[in-house]
Amino acid sequence: MTTKEYESYYVPSQSHWPIVGAVALFLIAVGAGNYVSTLKSEEGGFGGYILLAGFCLIIYMLYGWFSNVINESMSGKYSHQMDNSFRQGMSWFIFSEVMFFAAFFGALFYARTLSVPWLGGADNNAMTGAVLWPEFVSVWPLLTTPDGTETTKMGWYGLPLINTILLLTSSITAHLAHSALEKDNRKMLKIWLGLTILLGLVFLFLQVVEYMHGYSEEMKLYLTSGIYGTTFYMLTGFHGMHVTLGTIMLIVVFLRVLKGHFTPTNAFAFEAASWYWHFVDVVWVILFVFVYIV
């Protein structure tokens, strides 16, 4: 922090990266829209290619934009106030992610406490149960849906428990990496950060193994297996996507550490990635409790 209370705030000159990003998002949306709409048609669509082009473009844009920002930061253009803007921006972004998960957890709790019991005739819905699906029994997890689809429950022991331990450990290693950075201990920083990434990758690998297990003939736990399969795969799936994103962030930060970036006082990107990592960890704990155990 400098002694002057308000340094001059760096207002970047014009940049072409945002418009590249806008075109990329456009391609992704059009591509995904076409791809999804033609899933069931025989001839198929061209959407996949547009989608791929969109993703390539957005990776190019992120690379260019972030390089730009990193160069500005390394050349000392950013003030303390600018650093604050980034920090607050990242915090509110994580808050918006929390709300995104809230929608899906809301759907899970609604199904568990309201819609499934109501289908079984709870409260004033006696006739719903009796008229629509008289055979239906309301239980959670819902292994037999009203229309008779059957599936099995994914237990919490085994892979999910190992994954929980992995992620909790990774949060600790991320914290240790941060402490090492604050003490300017580069060697320990690299070790702890590398370990965090490794734990994240193992988590993702085991998650894939678990999905393959779920989709096997013996478990028959599909995305289409009624509300249990739906909430299971959508919650763990979106969580997995966020872990993937978090891992990518950590890898980028790791590469920057190898290049000698970050000092104990100037390490916003490192901290942002580690906040994000703690966030996906907390989501997992809630998920582990409400999707797997209870």
């Binding site: 999804v36 709409s37 899933l39 069931k40 759907a107 609604y110 199904a111 309201l114 819609s115 499934v116 109501w118 289908l119 629509l132 819902l142 849906t145 009203p146 229309d147 689809t149 995305l223 289409t224 297996s225 009624g226 509300i227 249990y228 399969g229 739906t230 795969y233 959508m234």
Partner: peptide, 17 residues
């Protein structure tokens, strides 16, 4: 498009959700 049951009562969901 992917056969989930959030809003489908036959799968245990609810359109009111």
């Amino acid at each position: 498009y992917f056969g989930t049951s959030f809003f489908n009562a036959a799968g245990g969901g609810d359109p009111v959700l």
